[in-house]
């Protein structure tokens, strides 16, 4: 059994194409100026439709983190325990990732790295930065 591979759609294709090029793309609203993640066709802050794609510097801090001892499926059994973190990126948006290269706690600085999985590239974080 393989770990889940993200299935991009029209909203998210630019993000996943960016990941394939090891580039973390996120959206910012040209109307209200706020960043958002995950990518959508609308700004979730002001409902503006004029969104631009920017490239993140790939650095942030852990907002919360848990160490998972029971995974959701057999695909994760071999890698338990593993950490799942919510990461607040310096550009003002949040995303989820596994932590590589050590154990993170709330506030730990992390940087984005990339994992090849199936036909996709998914962002992860490692300690440092």
């Amino acid at each position: 059994m393989e770990k889940p591979v993200p299935r991009p759609n029209a909203d998210s294709a630019p993000f996943w194409e960016g990941c394939a090029a090891h580039e973390f793309r996120f959206q910012r609203c040209r109307d209200c100026g706020k960043a958002q993640f995950y990518p959508r066709a609308v700004c979730s802050h002001c409902q503006g439709r004029d969104l631009e794609w920017l490239v993140s510097a790939g650095k942030g801090a852990v907002y919360s983190v848990t160490t998972v001892y029971r995974g959701p499926s057999a695909a994760f059994k071999d890698v338990t325990p593993y950490q799942v973190a919510l990461v607040d990126m310096d550009e003002g948006f949040r995303f989820m990732a596994n932590v590589r290269g050590g154990e993170a706690e709330i506030g730990t600085r992390v940087r984005v790295i990339y994992e090849e999985r199936g036909d996709q590239t998914i962002p992860q974080v490692e300690i440092g930065g």
Partner: peptide, 12 residues
């Protein structure tokens, strides 16, 4: 969990 942004990370 979200198929693209949570499930790949083994979130339960």
């Amino acid at each position: 969990g979200n198929q693209q942004y949570e499930q790949p990370y083994g979130m339960t």
